[in-house]
Simulated assay, not measured.
Amino acid sequence: MSIRTPRRRLAGALALALALAASALATTTATAAPDALTMVNGEGRTITLPAAATSALRSAAAGSSGTTTTPDRKPSPDLAADSVIGVDGRVQESAPSAFPWGAIAHLETNQGGCTGFMLSRDVLVTAGHCVHSGGSWVTSYRVTPGRTAGSAPFGSCSGGIADVWTTSAWINGYPSDHDYGLVKLTCDIGYQTGWFGWWYSTGENLVGQHFYAEGYPGDKPFGTMWWDGDSTYSQSANKLWYWIDTAPGQSGSPVYHYNSTTPGLCAGWCVTAIHTNGVAGGNPTNSGTRLRPDVMSFVNYWISRP
């Protein structure tokens, strides 16, 4: 298993000042998610969850996570401007088929390459732009967990436009706060890979915490998994910004930690955000969508479906 060691960069007074400014800006400009959640797939099918579905999770998350799922150990060209910040700190995964790295999958689609991660036997979570981008839906995909080039230790799972889901907020051009999606797979490959735990808490301060992001970058040998770990820079209710290096192809990667940063919310390898964006404008960091109540409601609905 790879040894994850903390690494910080670009530290100092300037970084701290920028962090405080960005945090304040993110807090004041974040767009609130609609109360009701409308999910859309590539065939035009829509499912609307009532406001009560996300309200219940929001209430539960006020003092604890919306889920206490723990990792289930089983036998053993992306469109976002993901960025390397300074010196490239990414390391190739040395044990891609071991848990939990085997629960990270190479997502190949007719629109390009992305990353996704397993949250159940048949739910692969990814970025919204990995299933719908530029007004177009993904119409075919192949998911290969734990891949290393031509090696597929768990096999792969393929499907089409009916299996890819995001929300009407993302389809209708809401900001990157709503950049999340999933694939309801046509196979139960998660029983072989296991899946991550996940958590969210409205009152949790994640700034300055050490996280990892791991996936399948397009600038490295094809189909190889790479990770980096570094500290978080700022947060809002919907987004998390961090110094972790990424590259195109890693959108949809899990932003994860060993145990929840607030004790007791999630045990083992646990995800709290979906990597979605690179450096943009005056913000010097990469960022991801936090697993907040509407995201959790969206994912939990599909976990519960046969």
Rank of each mutant, 00 (worst) to 15 (best):
G160R: 05
G160F: 11
G160V: 14
G160D: 14
I161Q: 10
I161K: 08
A162V: 11
D163L: 05
D163T: 09
W165S: 11
W165A: 10
T166D: 14
T166R: 00
T167G: 14
T167D: 13
S168D: 12
S168R: 09
W170M: 10
I171K: 13
I171Q: 15
N172P: 09
N172E: 15
N172H: 12
N172Q: 13
G173C: 07
G173Y: 02
G173M: 07
Y174F: 15
P175I: 03
S176L: 10
H178D: 13
D179G: 04
Y180M: 02
Y180P: 12
G181N: 03
G181Q: 09
L182S: 05
L182Y: 08
V183Y: 06
V183T: 04
V183R: 06
K184W: 12
L185Y: 01
L185T: 09
L185C: 11
L185F: 00
L185P: 13
T186Y: 00
T186L: 08
T186R: 13
C187V: 03
C187Y: 09
D188W: 07
D188R: 13
I189F: 10
I189L: 15
I189K: 06
G190C: 10
G190S: 12
G190K: 09
G190M: 12
Y191R: 15
Y191P: 01
Y191H: 12
Y191N: 15
Q192V: 00
Q192S: 15
Q192K: 14
Q192I: 03
G194E: 14
G194V: 09
G194H: 03
W195H: 13
W195A: 01
W195V: 05
F196H: 06
G197C: 13
W198I: 02
W199H: 11
W199M: 05
Y200N: 08
Y200K: 02
S201Q: 15
S201G: 15
S201A: 12
S201M: 10
S201H: 00
S201W: 05
S201K: 02
E204K: 01
E204V: 03
N205C: 04
N205W: 08
N205H: 07
L206Q: 02
L206W: 07
V207N: 08
G208D: 07
Q209P: 05
H210L: 06
H210T: 14
Y212L: 12
Y212M: 12
A213S: 15
E214K: 02
E214Y: 03
E214P: 06
G215Q: 03
G215T: 10
G215N: 06
G215K: 02
Y216W: 13
G218M: 04
G218Q: 02
D219C: 03
D219T: 10
K220R: 15
K220H: 13
P221S: 10
G223T: 03
T224L: 02
M225N: 01
M225Y: 04
M225Q: 15
W226T: 08
W226F: 11
W226Q: 01
D228H: 10
D230P: 08
S231W: 14
S231N: 11
S231T: 15
T232Y: 01
T232D: 06
Y233W: 12
S234L: 04
Q235I: 06
Q235L: 07
S236H: 00
A237N: 08
K239P: 08
K239Y: 00
L240C: 06
W241C: 08
Y242S: 07
W243F: 11
W243G: 04
I244V: 15
